[in-house]
Design a protein around this nucleic acid. Structure first.
Lengths: 212, 212
DNA sequence: GTGCGATGTATCGGTCCGATACATCGCGGC
DNA sequence: GCCGCGATGTATCGGACCGATACATCGCAC
């Protein structure tokens, strides 16, 4: 999972570890907390050993002056290799069971812009199935085993059930959207989410593209 | 976290591993998938080594006949010790940062029936604070960094933001409820959650109690 | 009578986290 | 002028937890 996320991010631009962690936090903030360095650095080394990423020379400010001053053994910038891009494509397309758990789905979804439509659909439907199963489990417990559980536990289940029902509806919208037409956006109904209305053209140099 | 969950469950009744896993799945189904045996059995051994649980003799059906037939090296039933109960009380009351992440909060909440009101309040408020922070983070990204991200990533953030807002409201209700009055139940508004209306008396032998 | 799914215990390798350590840089306060 | 402090940055270690796997028993349907 981490492999996929890192490969995906490095595909947008070369980065060093710290930056990677921040970008990851921004991209996956809805899914999980920032990744730990205890995972990040070993993973970077593993990816490098596998030949999927390489160290890129840190560009000195004006190509001199900076180097051996106080020995400066600072940032290590990584960039993705051709093999790394292949590996990413492979990871993003292949779906195991872990693709549909909370984290796995989140990571895949976050890179949907680099995924073909058929795969997107497959993943969305797999996720829906999984959440539906969880939902049924909760309904069972709430229906059949209700008197065995205390009020707090029941309240927890109800809240979980509610979340499941919501997510299924969300997925339905995304699937419908995906099947016929475009735009991954789900129609906002009553939500208070400070969405800015103007869509000014993206500042040039910000949106990076690479191989159409 | 696992320690707390196991100690809590064993406080309701002695159980063997398999049963423990099922009960845990029922109690925490809203929070996380069933716990893995690769965690469960080592943890049981650790708890036993610490003196918090002990093996209880498997009760033979009518106190004989069953034993050495085919050597029967079957189920290992665990029960909690006095030290274990102390440990549980300590774990349930003390709140570190991990108390407020998804899993930690879920486990604590599931045992709120065994927690005093002050602690309940403290945990609910801690959780609320944490979710509020996550919410602010998402709003930031959605507001400030929106043009850096693709439509799918944005949709993911919006869905996450929505979930945060919902959870905060849920927590608010629970906190208000907790502060003045009783009943951990949040008023159901529009939810379609097949809640059965009759509350027939629980079948005897089902609800186990142990020390009032 | 046999196969098969549920029950049941157990281990192993791998992933990821949290705590910790350490070094540099820029900036504001004294 | 310099001192501390928070942000930036790389790195390791022990521990928690998971997923796959193995293996044995039981009851029941075919």
């Amino acid at each position: 999972m981490l492999d996929l996320a890192i490969l995906g991010l490095l595909q947008e631009s070369p980065m060093h570890g710290y930056e990677l962690r921040k970008e990851l936090a921004a991209k996956l903030g809805a899914i999980r907390a920032a990744i730990s360095y205890g995972s990040l650095y070993p993973t970077l080394r593993r990816l490098q050993a596998a030949g999927w990423i390489t160290e890129a020379a840190e560009t000195p400010v004006t190509a001199e002056e900076v180097p051996a001053l106080t020995s400066r053994r600072g940032r290590v910038v990584y960039k993705i290799t051709a093999e790394g891009k292949e590996r990413f494509a492979q990871l993003i397309a292949q779906a195991g069971p872990e693709t549909y758990d909370d984290t796995g789905f989140g990571v895949h979804f976050a890179f949907f812009a680099r995924t073909d439509q058929a795969t997107r659909l497959r993943i969305l439907e797999g996720r829906r199935r999984k959440i539906e199963e969880r939902r049924e489990g909760l309904r069972d417990v709430l229906g059949r085993a209700a008197e065995r559980l205390d009020a707090y536990t029941l309240e927890l289940q109800r809240h979980g059930l509610d979340a499941c029902e919501r997510e299924v509806r969300w997925l339905e919208e995304l699937i419908a959207n995906e099947r016929s037409g475009r735009a991954p956006t789900v129609p906002r109904t009553g939500t208070a989410g400070g969405r800015r209305e103007d869509n000014s053209p993206p500042p040039p140099g910000e949106t990076r593209k690479e191989r159409p």
